[in-house]
Structure formats: C-alpha cells, structure tokens
C-alpha cells in the first residue's frame, strides 16, 4: 500500500497532467526553446509579453493585463517559444496580425523612422536656428558707431568724491 502511495505521489508531483506534448517523445534535434527550464520560459514569455500591447486594454501590456485576449496572447507566446521561435519572430507574427500598433516600442523602419528621428531632427533644426540667431546678435551692427577702442580716462578726485556722495545717498 505504501509503495502504491509513493508511486502515485511521484507521478502526480513530478509528472503533472499537461496538454503540452511530451518533450522526450519527440524525434530529431530539439529546438532551442525546448531546452528551456520553466523559469527561463516564464522569463522569456514575460520579456516578449511586456513589449506587446493588450489590444483591448488601456495602455496595458499583454503581460500586465488579465483580459482573456491578453491571457490567450501570452499562451501563444509561450507555445511559439516552445516551438523554438525567437523573440523577433514572435513579435513579427503579432505585427503581421495586428500591425505595428500591437508593440509598445515602434520598430525602427518605414514611417516609424520619423517617430525615432523626428525629435533629434527638430533638435538639430532648432539648434541651427539658435546658432544663426546668436551669431547675428553677437555681430556688431553696421549702422551703430563702433565702441571706442581706447581705454577710458581715469576719473579725478573731485568726480570720485561726488560719486561716493551719490552712492551714500542711496
């Protein structure tokens, strides 16, 4: 009886019932993701799901949302990882279904280049305008007389005393 109990305990604890195909029953070389441990798979799923936008939520990622669609999307990410697909391939799959909207970080291509490069272009544009104006402001005005190049005459004692008097008055 004890032997049977131990056997059943071992079976249910170490070989839980799962819908996933048995990995050891597969033939041929093992795809890279199949060698992942649970923790690694979870971490990889999280990494990808955090980049994907939950299509039915307000600014929530597929990882953060508990909507049914987000849960189903997480399952698909996990399935595809197990099938050996890379992060890029999985993201590309979701983009092919929902468009660029589905990823939080716009991809560096096409019209998205404007999003990435736009702020830098505007900064450059503003900088050039600022530089041009600054150089204009610092250039001496052609119509104004030039500042006297000679040093000013020193003030005499009388003027100095008067200045001090005025300063004291406040």
């Amino acid at each position: 009886m004890r032997i049977w109990a131990t056997f059943l305990f071992t079976v249910f604890v170490f070989f839980p019932v799962s819908e996933e195909p048995l990995l050891f029953a597969q033939d041929g070389p093992m795809p890279p993701a199949l060698s992942m441990g649970d923790d690694e798979l979870q971490a990889k799923t999280k990494e990808i799901a955090k980049v994907l936008r939950c299509a039915v939520c307000q600014s929530e990622s597929v990882w953060e949302s508990n909507s049914t669609l987000a849960i189903q999307m997480r399952d698909i990410v996990r399935e595809r990882l197990l099938a050996g697909e890379s992060s890029d391939e999985i993201q590309a799959y979701f983009v092919s279904r929902y468009g660029d909207y589905i990823i939080f970080k716009p991809r560096f291509r096409g019209i998205n280049l404007l999003l990435w490069g736009g702020p830098f272009l505007l900064l450059l544009f503003g900088g050039v305008i600022l530089l041009r104006n600054l150089s204009k402001w610092t250039k001496p005005h052609p119509e104004l007389p030039e500042a006297p190049s000679a040093s000013l005459d020193p003030i005499d004692e009388k003027q100095r005393q008067r200045l001090e008097q005025e300063l004291r008055k406040g």
């Binding site: 039915v56 669609l69 189903q72 999307m73 399952d75 698909i76 979701f94 279904r97 929902y98 468009g99």
Partner: peptide
C-alpha cells in the same frame, strides 16, 4: 476555444 483563430485574424473584439 483558445483564441488562436481570433488572434490569427487580428481580431480585437
């Protein structure tokens, strides 16, 4: 059942 078809077709709702 698992939402696979809907996601394959890019269904939002």
């Amino acid at each position: 059942a698992k939402g696979k078809i809907s996601i394959d077709y890019g269904v939002y709702g």
